[in-house]
């Protein structure tokens, strides 16, 4: 425990970069997955293609993807952008399906009503379809967040610093407390991401909190 007491500053700095490396891809991934998921819904022939492609992307080992990035992007080997881009790829791979499924979870009679009222294009997407898909998308986002937090730690092997460093360093130098601290910090971080997404979902879906309050549905 004395190790932890002596290294609060280091843990905090590593945790902060961990947050960025896992969090930015989450946001970027969602922004990219939204139009892709929409397209998968819109053109039904695209759906299986996009789903298989994203499934395939997810099977590439993270270390391989990290190593490939500088070659593909022409970035420096130690550049954190490599990690951000690779993590974004993973997030998109996870979320395309989620977004498509979320959009198809919107009841057909609601979509028909929207059409009948004269809703079109963007307005229909942002006004009706997306808000109703939030619960499903948020569930997928929570899985992606936890998975990102855990995958990012592998980046220590290509020299990009974050909480994973505590694991590799602790292993190399036989400091158990450091390893434990790394694990605990990762878990705490994952819980924080999860809690924030849950909170966001609750704020975005006030109508779900009242369900059953009156229980008058017939």
């Amino acid at each position: 425990m004395t190790w932890v007491n002596d290294h609060w500053g280091d843990i905090f700095t590593l945790a902060r970069s961990h947050v960025w490396l896992a969090g930015i891809p989450l946001v970027l991934g969602l922004l990219i997955a939204l139009p892709l998921g929409w397209a998968a819904r819109r053109w039904s022939r695209l759906y299986p293609v996009l789903i298989s492609a994203s499934g395939l992307l997810y099977t590439i080992p993270s270390l391989a993807l990290f190593v490939l990035m500088p070659i593909i992007l022409g970035t420096k080997v130690l550049d954190p952008v490599n990690v951000v881009v690779a993590m974004t790829v993973y997030t998109v791979a996870l979320l395309v399906r989620t977004v498509a499924d979320g959009l198809s979870s919107v009841p057909d009679h609601v979509l028909q009503a929207a059409r009948a009222m004269g809703y079109r294009g963007f307005r229909r997407f942002f006004g009706v379809e997306l808000p109703l898909a939030v619960p499903v998308i948020a569930a997928g986002l929570r899985v992606a967040a936890v998975s990102n937090v855990s995958i990012v730690s592998v980046a220590s092997l290509i020299g990009v610093a974050q909480l994973g460093n505590l694991l590799t360093d602790g292993y190399d130098r036989f400091i158990t407390a450091e390893i434990v601290a790394g694990i605990v910090a990762c878990v705490v971080l994952a819980l924080v991401f999860d809690g924030l997404i849950l909170l966001g979902q609750r704020l975005l879906t006030p109508w779900l909190r009242v369900r059953g309050a009156a229980g008058a549905r017939s």
Partner: peptide, 22 residues
């Protein structure tokens, strides 16, 4: 124009079809 036509015609859909989020 499709949307203009629809906005000028009231439509009551089967099972009400209300927007659950509004």
């Amino acid at each position: 124009n499709e949307a203009d036509l629809r906005r000028g015609i009231g439509y009551v859909i089967q099972h009400a079809g209300l927007f659950p989020h509004r």
